[in-house]
């Protein structure tokens, strides 16, 4: 099973995990990223490159599926304006054993951070806005897998 979605609407983590659990493997791993609050942040705006985003996410998922024996992968990434605490992204993986599920889940989120065409803009209560700068350590983490 391979499920890759780029969407503005929220998703239901329990429903997504249940679909992975139903595949008959013994191990399901998942990661959920939500908008970090604090420091006056009122919203996070996610821009993306519609012609490329889903294709690029498919390439990353295909890479994971060629590296680990996976029964299923779910990757959902939202775009648009999100409130603090809102879900941004989820990765779920199913395999017969926990090692492959956990490792591939970490691989997928590391690569989504450094290789999926999304850009985050922070909106603050005082009206200020800032484009989030890419972190060198995120690129290094992704490269660490190759």
């Amino acid at each position: 099973m391979k499920r890759v979605n780029v969407q503005s609407e929220d998703f239901n983590v329990a429903t997504e995990l249940a679909a992975l659990e139903a595949l008959g493997g013994g191990g399901i791993a998942s990661f959920t990223g939500v908008v970090r609050g604090g420091e006056g942040l009122i919203a996070l705006e996610l821009e993306h490159y519609p012609a490329m985003t889903a294709k690029q996410m498919e390439r990353i998922v295909d890479d994971a599926m060629s590296r680990w024996p996976l029964l299923g992968v779910t990757v959902i990434h939202r775009f648009g304006r999100l409130d603090p605490g809102a879900r941004i992204v989820m990765v779920g993986t199913a395999s017969r054993h926990r090692g492959a599920a956990l490792e591939s889940c970490a691989f997928l989120i590391d690569w989504l951070k450094s290789d999926a065409p999304f850009w985050k803009k922070e909106h603050f209560a005082d009206g200020a806005t800032t484009w989030v700068a890419a972190r060198e350590e995120d690129a290094a983490k992704a490269k660490g897998w190759s």
Partner: peptide, 29 residues
């Protein structure tokens, strides 16, 4: 940059590209 929806380095020749995208380093996830 990306050429026809594939990331490339800036020393890449434009070739027969149909679409070029220019943007800052990505910050998704």
């Amino acid at each position: 940059a990306a050429v026809d929806q594939h990331f490339v380095s800036l020393d890449t020749p434009i070739g027969e590209a149909r679409e070029l995208a220019i943007f800052p380093p990505v910050t998704g996830g």
